[in-house]
């Protein structure tokens, strides 16, 4: 049977654990850590989502956004010194945007879904127009072409507040393509790599840069 690109809830949990472990063992990363947030939307049923909060994003002079965590201990991950300096300079101008990312399992689509929100340093929430400025060009194009089916406001399934959501309806299809069918034999391997692969795609769409090392780990 060919794998359809989806995960069961248990597989999602396994995939999430692997992601967290790999992420925390990264040697070069200026990003905060993914953490498990336990929740129960129904009594006695343990559920969780993954959370990566306080990701700072600074605008470079060339318009490419960078991520780094808030403590200011940013190692210059793939950023050359000039850009790094610019980023710092911009920080001083309070231009940084702070993002929170949550990965929630969708029981409907059986895939992970990315929820996110952004704010300014002073706590003022970012409107979609502000977020647009942080998006890569092609994502911006997609957003303009498919305003209602790419990124929209949704009720966060556990927090009951409006968050932005990256629409998941095509996820299983492209995940299947990423693995090109070959992985169907070793489901375990698929699960181990699933969230890193998935993140590399959705992260690109919204300008969250995933450390390369995450991928090297399992190549």
């Amino acid at each position: 049977m060919v794998w359809d690109g989806t995960l069961t809830p248990d597989e999602f949990e396994a995939a999430a654990r692997t992601l967290c472990e790999r992420w925390s063992s990264l040697t070069v990363s200026d990003l905060p850590l993914w953490t498990f947030i336990n929740t129960s939307s129904s009594p006695s049923k343990a559920e969780f989502y993954l959370s990566l909060e306080d990701v700072y994003r600074f605008k470079n002079s060339d318009g490419v956004a960078n991520n780094m965590k808030g403590e200011g201990t940013c190692s210059a991950d793939e950023v050359d010194d000039d850009k790094y300096a610019t980023a710092l300079a911009v920080t001083c101008n309070q231009e940084a945007h702070v993002y929170d990312f949550h990965i929630v399992y969708s029981f409907s689509y059986r895939v992970p879904v990315l929820y996110f929100r952004g704010r300014r340093i002073d706590g003022q929430p970012l409107e979609l127009e502000d977020i647009e400025k942080d998006l890569p060009q092609y994502a911006l194009r997609t957003l303009r072409e498919s305003k209602w089916t790419f990124i929209t406001w949704e009720d966060h399934p556990y927090l009951h507040r409006p968050w932005y959501m990256l629409h998941p309806c095509g996820t299983s299809e492209w995940m299947k393509l990423l693995y090109n069918g070959e992985a169907s034999a070793v489901k375990d391997a698929v699960i181990q790599q699933y969230l890193a692969c998935w993140l590399s795609v959705v992260g690109q769409a919204i300008g969250l840069r995933i450390p390369l090392e995450l991928h090297n780990k399992f190549l």
Binding site: P125, W148, T149, T152, W153, E154, D155, R161, P162
Partner: peptide, 16 residues
């Protein structure tokens, strides 16, 4: 109350 309710810009928001 934007922190509680999803913004509703127009009928289009509801439609989508």
């Amino acid at each position: 109350p934007g922190e509680i309710l999803i913004p509703c810009e127009s009928e289009d928001s509801v439609k989508w």
